[in-house]
Design a binder for these strands. Structure first.
Length: 314
DNA sequence: AAATTAGTCAACCGCGCGAGG
DNA sequence: CCCTCGCGCGGTTGACTAATT
């Protein structure tokens, strides 16, 4: 079908996204919820804007609350390897198991890191092992299983408790952020954040009503200060709070799954994908996700592997 | 210090699918 | 049925940065 019509219009700007555009997009989504992307460019009141497709992409891959940036943990790495072996290059499906990561992120990580690792791994294998498609998978299982012991909070089966943590965390964090804003002259460096930075982020609050207490604001701030934010909101505890947004929608989407069509509740792509994937899997005769989850998260996954017909990995 | 190469990742593009007319 | 539209996905590109020469 090609490019969406809105992209062909003369005067439609293409990326990269500016902070101002991000703010407008976030504030719009805050008000209307994600979805109905077609309407976003026209309703934002800006004539020169990015096409709806770009808006959706920017939101899902960058601005959406709860997105974790930075290095992948061994646990996440292991999960990706597991899931890639199971599902193939179904990055969206894989991303449903890593709620904090986007499909784009996972795809990039696979292409830039894991592919290389795999190559290295295979070249370092004994000839007979190199031909064994499960070898890398087993290698991943090991690291995945070991890291799992220390990262139980990331387990899918316990996601609900993770997500159920209070959103107040974000508010508190943001309060701290906004308080140390430009009007306080002598706070040159707070947690590595300069006055200039404070001024910049403090201004978000002026532009967007209730910005300080919004999930999106946390995400937006994180986007623009990825390194320094590690000092400010790095902990899993605090990140958990950000996930409340996702969980709320996820729960909603699961409960409201009977509501067909383009409901304005603003289903997040990820939630939709998760639900659809599960339905699809049931239809296709693939193991339902609940089973996969169990299998994936079972620390004795290696034993199960033997019982389960795995598709060739590569 | 400058030039070159390699690595990373945000963003774009093309395609397919489903819904609605 | 057929067509159009909106959306989502996977592959790819290209700008930027870091590392190396």
């Amino acid at each position: 079908m090609g490019r969406p019509p809105c992209c062909d219009k003369v005067g439609i700007k293409k990326g990269p996204w500016t902070p101002e555009e991000d703010i407008i997009l976030v504030s719009y989504i805050q008000e209307h919820g994600p979805g109905n992307w077609r309407a976003v460019p026209t309703n934002t009141g800006i004539t020169i804007f990015l096409c709806s497709k770009s808006c959706r992409l920017r939101w899902t891959n960058y601005l959406r609350p709860g997105i974790k940036r930075g290095n992948f943990t061994p646990h996440e790495e292991g999960m990706i390897i597991h899931l890639q072996a199971l599902l193939g290059n179904k990055w969206a499906a894989i991303a449903t198991y890593l709620p904090q990561r986007t499909d784009n992120d996972i795809k990039n990580y696979w292409n830039t890191h894991l592919k290389k690792k795999l190559k290295k791994f295979q070249s370092g294998l004994e000839p007979q092992m190199a031909g064994d498609p499960t070898a890398f998978h087993q290698f991943a299982s090991k690291s995945y299983g070991e890291s799992s012991k220390n990262e139980s909070s990331l387990r899918i089966g316990e996601n609900s408790s993770v997500y159920a943590s209070s959103a107040e965390n974000i508010s508190r964090l943001l309060e701290g952020w906004m308080r140390s804003s430009p009007l306080q002259p002598n706070t040159n460096q707070i947690n590595g954040i300069s006055n200039h930075d404070n001024k910049f982020y403090g201004n978000f609050g002026k532009i967007i009503p209730n910005f300080e207490n919004s999930d999106a604001s946390a995400s937006l701030i994180q986007c623009y200060r990825p390194q320094k934010m590690e000092h400010v909101m790095p902990s899993d505890h605090e990140l958990e709070g950000m996930l409340v947004f996702d969980h709320h929608h996820h729960h909603k989407s699961s409960c409201d799954s009977s509501q067909k069509g383009s409901e304005s509740s603003g289903l997040i792509d990820h939630d939709k994908a998760c639900f659809e994937h599960e339905q699809k899997a049931k239809i296709d005769g693939n193991p339902p996700l609940s089973f996969l989850e169990k299998w994936l998260l079972d620390e004795s996954a290696a034993q199960v592997e033997g019982a389960m017909e795995l598709p060739p990995i590569f």
